[in-house]
Design a protein around this nucleic acid. Sequence first.
DNA 1: TAAACATGAAACCAATTGGTTATATTTTTG
DNA 2: CAAAAATATAACCAATTGGTTTCATGTTTA
Lengths: 107, 107
Amino acid sequence: MTAPAEKHDVFKAIADPTRREVLRLLAESERPISEIADHFDMSRTAVTKHLNILTEAELISGRKEGREKIYQLHPEPLTEVKQWLSYYEKFWENKLSMLKHLVEDEK
Amino acid sequence: MTAPAEKHDVFKAIADPTRREVLRLLAESERPISEIADHFDMSRTAVTKHLNILTEAELISGRKEGREKIYQLHPEPLTEVKQWLSYYEKFWENKLSMLKHLVEDEK
DNA sequence: TAAACATGAAACCAATTGGTTATATTTTTG
DNA sequence: CAAAAATATAACCAATTGGTTTCATGTTTA
């Protein structure tokens, strides 16, 4: 009803350091595959597979432009991670407020 | 010099839905292995492996108490994910503020 | 103390992951 | 048009992942 049964969820997509680096590159600017691949010490084909996984998680999308395929960032799915994290923030916020008490007691 | 060369990084640790569920359970309260395992449709041994991975990421820790091993949550490493996310927040902040407006309108 | 309980550890397995090389297709460009 | 450029696709492979079953060990407890 809500999510379209995502094949690769965003948590798995960002689990790989290469894919996180791809996201960082595309945050700077959109890029064709070959330019992305140049940043890594692996084959273009391997990079393409990572791009496919990121695409399935809807974190990026590619459009064909002439003989190139240009990929761009779509950060929206990261909100799911942020929401998940927010549940745990209270645990370290408590420690912060405890710390705040300590600090205030010292005044 | 800083981090002790973590074998399993936190991004990989939270990539698995079973492990995220374990974290949620331990957020409620600390629990022995058998009680954690009762929540899943898999063997206790399989759950133990997930607990080991979470332990290596320092997201949980277990102490032996009699014949039980009690695990508890350590959410601190999640700050690494939060920091990573913060880099991308600027990209969706516009959309979030739109959402905030919607929520506030409902009050 | 014997049985039950909780865990640990080892061996094994299928599927997935992350990579490779080789070949084909489409699109410029000289 | 022929060659170069950019990508796509397929077949393959080793390592990792996520699970299993079996057996051993330490700890209560009846």
